[in-house]
Simulated assay, not measured.
Amino acid sequence: MTANTERLGSFDVPHEARGWHTALYYFAEHMRSLSHGCVNHKILYSYIGMNGHYINHDNPTIRKRTAAVLSRLMHSRRYAEDFRISFEADPDVFDKGALLLCAALCDKSGCDPAETVQYFRTDLWRDVEQGLRNEREDGRAELNLDRATNEMRLMLGWSEIQPVEASREVLSVLVSTYFYLMTFGCVNERLVRLLVDATPDEAPAPAKHPPARLREECACLIRYDEKATAVVSWWTVEATHPLAIGRYSDSDVIEPNPYVSRSHCRISFQNGAWLLTDEGSTHGTCVLRAGQVAFDTARDGRGPFQLALNDRIVLAKTSFYWFGAFVEKDRPARC
């Protein structure tokens, strides 16, 4: 690796509370080191539309005060609220900020795009993941660390198999993904559309890719709204680990819908088949296949029922899921 992307030392400060080291703190310190100071935390904030008009204010007192405020935010999980406000005002703000950061790293600081992508996949992710853990321990209750890790693992796996000549574009996607992850604790649904054979809103139309077949090692479960127009969240389902869905906090998929039972159902892999089993739910589970009811606990009992690609799973008649496969050519080597 070039000097710009060699492994950096720890940014932790001894005796500081762990919650002080947020995901944004680690991210900003890595960017400052990679860019040789070109991208400090003030500049990083300005990239996504926050307080940009104060960054280079003529009054040095205002510049100093702004730096102090942004430094405190960077070290506090409150930064996510700032980022969220910026995103709600302009949904493209993370993509725009990613282009600015890529230009600063690759054009101004001389970082090699391919090596920087590798750095984002390894050293940077290790510290940002730790920062998210710190925030969770410090009280950021909405963070689902398992989901964040799962989705970023897929994102980074996708970046690994892209052609070298596309490294600059891949780096931009990664930067935008990190911004979104640090803000919302999950990955933008754009990743789903990169990796998954089809999503619910695409079902009526021909698939973009040749039909995928379900693989033994993993499948994809997508939570979508009732009209199938938006992806709410998504998970990988691994053959080695049954996926539990319910309101219990230790479920793999925590479903807040009060009509869904605390331990509603689970998806598992047995003898070469993916199976759905109702766990004794109060309001039932059904599976729709090609618009027809293929399984209904009120009619067929608890199962297990063998799932097929593009099945729609409906819990308590009010929560909707899509069971699918990853696109063969885009899918990472490991789930």
Rank of each mutant, 00 (worst) to 15 (best):
A114R: 11
A68R: 07
D330F: 08
L171Y: 01
T149H: 03
A28I: 02
D12S: 06
W234N: 08
V187D: 14
V327D: 12
A244W: 08
F11D: 01
N257H: 10
T318V: 09
E151W: 02
E189I: 15
T61Q: 13
I85C: 09
G110K: 10
L132H: 01
V314Q: 03
R147L: 10
Y178K: 01
A68L: 11
P91R: 07
V173L: 14
I55S: 06
N40D: 15
A166C: 07
G37S: 08
E165G: 04
A114V: 02
C218W: 04
D225V: 06
S46C: 13
K317Q: 06
D138R: 05
P332R: 01
M155I: 02
N56P: 05
L195M: 11
L44T: 04
C102P: 02
I48A: 04
P60E: 09
L145C: 03
P210A: 13
R215K: 15
I161N: 14
T236G: 12
P211N: 12
R302L: 02
N310C: 11
T5R: 09
E226C: 02
E6A: 09
A114H: 05
Q118M: 12
G139H: 03
G185I: 15
A333S: 14
L221A: 03
V187C: 14
P200I: 03
D95A: 15
S261H: 05
Q292Y: 04
H36N: 13
H209D: 15
D82F: 08
D123M: 04
A198I: 15
L194K: 13
N51M: 13
C186N: 12
Y47D: 08
A198M: 15
V293Q: 04
E160S: 11
H53D: 14
Y45A: 14
R331F: 00
L243N: 01
G52M: 13
A308I: 00
L315E: 08
T236I: 14
F295E: 01
E169F: 02
A3G: 08
G49M: 12
G185A: 13
A67W: 03
D58Y: 11
D112I: 02
N150D: 13
M155R: 11
P91E: 07
E151C: 11
P91K: 07
G272I: 05
K108I: 12
T277Y: 06
T122Q: 07
W234F: 09
A67R: 02
P204W: 14
I85V: 14
Y79C: 10
D278N: 10
R266G: 00
D107T: 06
A166D: 10
I48S: 03
S172N: 12
T22M: 00
H53A: 13
D225G: 06
Y79G: 02
Q270A: 04
V232L: 14
A166F: 00
A316T: 00
F11G: 02
R299K: 11
A298Q: 12
R133P: 00
N150K: 10
A23I: 06
C218T: 15
D12M: 04
G52T: 10
V293R: 05
D92C: 07
G291T: 03
I222L: 14
A230F: 06
F11N: 00
P256D: 01
F87Q: 09
S263K: 06
D112M: 04
A68M: 08
E328T: 07
A23R: 01
A141Q: 07
L143F: 08
L191R: 08
